[in-house]
Each structure stands twice: as structure tokens, then as C-alpha cells.
């Protein structure tokens, strides 16, 4: 099954190697890994997605915690959460056939962020399937896609309070029920993306 781990790690040289090395050792391929600054000073936040057996989740989380530079680990599993990915896609487009791509971008609620006489760049955020959908349609035209750059998944548990992230991390093991957040008022946020 697909596992998603969210971890806070110390922002120091070599920390990412330690995390990656753990998965290498377990012979688990990392599907995606995103890292960036977090709300905590001196700590980066990463989202790591990998394919492993259902039982492996516990051991991976426990092993991540054994790394001295890892501060917090959350195994998102089936918990209510929001996952997004960012993609930049450069496609070949001349002034003559641009309009068709503009339409496509509209349908997928993506954006054009760069335009030259031979190509244009699409920026799109969304869930994986939506991005794959756009890429698939663009591929219908052979040779149209010039470059694809995808960020990998970023995941955050649903919930109102920032501090609840902390809480949820401690509470995951005992009572998964506690982690269910208060429903978010904004319907758009709950729509099946």
C-alpha cells in the first residue's frame, strides 16, 4: 500500500541523506519526497510517499524516530488530509495552435506562466490524478510535451489549529479517532479533487 509520512527534521547538512538512507536500506523505493522550511525555526518539514506493506508503516515510523535529527513523524495513513502536488509543464505551441492549449488549461483550472513563440509553460496544482489527467491529454499530441517538472506530494492533516498537528502526532497511536478534525466550513476544500 501507499504510505505517506510527514516528518519534521533538523535543518542541517546530511539529514536528508539519513532519511533517504533508511529507505534505501529497507529496499523501499521512495515515490516522492518534498522538503522545505516549516513553521518551526530550524526545522524542515518533509512529505515522503512510498510503497510498502501495510505492516511496514509502524516500523518505518519507529525507525525514522531513531534518527537523531528527526523531531516528529506522522504516518498519515487513511487520516483525513489534504494532498497537493505542483507541476510545471512546458509544451510546444506556436501562435497557430496555442488557443487549443488555452482551452485545455481552462478546463483543468491550470495557469499559463510563460509564453514564447515556440512554447508555453503551464503551472498546475492539484491532486496527482488531476495532474496526470492533464499530462495524458497533452500527450495525445505526439511531441508536444517538452519538459515536465513535478514537486512530489505535499500532505497536511485536515484541522483548524496549527497546534493540533503537534497533538495529532502524539495522539495517532492511541486513538486515531481523536485525530478527526472539525469539518472545514469551506466546501471547496472538501471537494473530491
Amino acid at each position: 500500500m501507499l504510505h505517506t509520512f510527514v516528518a519534521y527534521v533538523e535543518d542541517l547538512p546530511g539529514v536528508l541523506t539519513r532519511v533517504a538512507s533508511l529507505f534505501r536500506r529497507l529496499n523501499i523505493n521512495i515515490n516522492s519526497l518534498t522538503v522545505g522550511r516549516s513553521e518551526r525555526p530550524g526545522q524542515s518539514r518533509l512529505t515522503l510517499v512510498c510503497e510498502a506493506s501495510a505492516e511496514a508503516g509502524h516500523r518505518i515510523r519507529a525507525s525514522l524516530f531513531k534518527l537523531e535529527n528527526v523531531v516528529d513523524v506522522d504516518d498519515i495513513a487513511q487520516a483525513p488530509s489534504v494532498t497537493r502536488e505542483l507541476a510545471l509543464i512546458k509544451v510546444a505551441a506556436s501562435p497557430k495552435n496555442r488557443a487549443q492549449i488555452f482551452d485545455l488549461v481552462e478546463v483543468f483550472r491550470a495557469r499559463i506562466v510563460d509564453l514564447t513563440s515556440e512554447s508555453l509553460m503551464i503551472e498546475m496544482t492539484g491532486v496527482e490524478s488531476k495532474i496526470e489527467g492533464l499530462i495524458e491529454v497533452l500527450r495525445e499530441d505526439d511531441g508536444r510535451i517538452l519538459e515536465i517538472c513535478r514537486s512530489g506530494k505535499m500532505t497536511m492533516r485536515r484541522g483548524h489549529h496549527v497546534s493540533s498537528v503537534l497533538k495529532a502526532m502524539g495522539a495517532v497511536d492511541e486513538a486515531p479517532g481523536n485525530a478527526v478534525p472539525v469539518a472545514v466550513g469551506d466546501v471547496a476544500a472538501n471537494e473530491p479533487e
Binding site: 505492516e55 509502524h58 516500523r59 519507529a62 525507525s63 524516530f65 531513531k66
Partner: peptide, 8 residues
Amino acid sequence: VDPAEVNK
């Protein structure tokens, strides 16, 4: 003492 050893 090591949670990674439990149910391994």
C-alpha cells in the same frame, strides 16, 4: 526498548 523491534 526499541519500538522498531516490536512485531518485526
